[in-house]
Design a binder for these strands. Sequence first.
DNA 1: CGGTTTTTTGATCTCTATCAACTATTGTGG
DNA 2: CCACAATAGTTGATAGAGATCAAAAAACCG
Lengths: 243, 243
Amino acid sequence: MKALLSSLERHCRLSPEERAAIGTLREAPPVRVPARQTTLSEGDKPGAVRLLAQGWACRFKDLPDGRRQIVGLLLPGDFFDPGLPPMQEMDHSVAALTPIAYHTIPPEALERLVREEPGIADAFARHAHVGAAIHREWLLNLGRRNAFERLAHLFLEIFTRLRSHGDDCEMECDCPLTQNDLADATGVTSVHLNRTMQELRREGLVELKSKRLFIRDYDRLAQVAMFNPNYLQVGHETRIFAQ
Amino acid sequence: MKALLSSLERHCRLSPEERAAIGTLREAPPVRVPARQTTLSEGDKPGAVRLLAQGWACRFKDLPDGRRQIVGLLLPGDFFDPGLPPMQEMDHSVAALTPIAYHTIPPEALERLVREEPGIADAFARHAHVGAAIHREWLLNLGRRNAFERLAHLFLEIFTRLRSHGDDCEMECDCPLTQNDLADATGVTSVHLNRTMQELRREGLVELKSKRLFIRDYDRLAQVAMFNPNYLQVGHETRIFAQ
DNA sequence: CGGTTTTTTGATCTCTATCAACTATTGTGG
DNA sequence: CCACAATAGTTGATAGAGATCAAAAAACCG
């Protein structure tokens, strides 16, 4: 299963044996889900590991009165339910932001894999670590950065995460998020997000048009966002692959 | 090693063999650290698993201009660096909030343990899952709850986490946090936190005096906080107040 | 095209930050 | 045990960031 292989190698070098073991997994056709659909809800028992192959999704939590917070973005190559074994019960929901396709890896196959090659469990753990580190950076973002800095930081995270697995090095990337999505991710209202976005544009830092993000001044953007990419673990044992 | 055993059993039942394996770990005297001292800094390579035995600590991140956000609380029985194997490089810092004592479990011993009893890795993973779920709940807290709701929620989390491992069922518990700590955890200034705390007191919901937290009206508190303890994975002995 | 979704604008209000004291509490050494 | 210093908690006044409400313009889509 090629998608799993390249995803696991993103944060961890695998041995030939480990790769071979992963190669024995039989490839099933991916599940397709239309945009805006919730694929996993709070309280569900996931029962399998899901790997996002195409499209963007998000983790989110709702408050009883309707307020919604996006607590994480899933980009191609990310796992829906981080960690092995799969969690008992979802504490949050996952929804497609664009049309998506994901692979489902049955738990039995995974158990066999990990039994044969225990190092594979480490590769999963590495993913979970990065996921947790991203959560913590978002906590800092929501707790201590203002809307302007927050949005700048989010754009840089997206840019860096996308570039880390295959995109080329130009100063733009996909970003199919609506301003509403961005507002839910940064914890502000969509009205305020709109104004913040205009300010970023006016300052010549970032522009977002037709689902594409343009970094106009990386250095100044990184400075106002106080962006330190270490938490994303790019660079170390990262394997670049073209998709 | 008794501390490790009871900590792992908090979220996962262990087999007699697994317990026996853990029993073979030799008990070293715990490391003691005075209050307010940073024990692990961003960028450090932890190189071992640390288990908090006594006292409270926190994970935090700083911004270059001095703003600080507490991104997690460590209570007795919690691991400093969640996940197995230990993370490469700390993306955040850990500091003692009170005088603390922690156990250090050498990586070799842990590797042996997991090799002998693979189920033990699952117990660690369970811890990591709960840790991640707490992060996500905090993201919702910072992103979508106001100061009043946030503080109410934090108190309920503390109360629930402490009660879940041994405290009796009276409506009070330890809480050695200063208002400054609470402000850093809830993402507000200490002045505003002070006023918010007074409001909680005035409303007859919570009181905090001489390092002790008194829950004056659990039901109303849970309601204003929109507290749903599921994310903490405590058994169903905990009441649920979703709405 | 017409209808839906997304983005934008303006006015107003509320929550939280900031600054600058001041008081209470805790802790320490003589 | 007191005296004093340091820490922690409290108060008031004011400024600013972001929320809210309502509606218009623009973009998207079948």
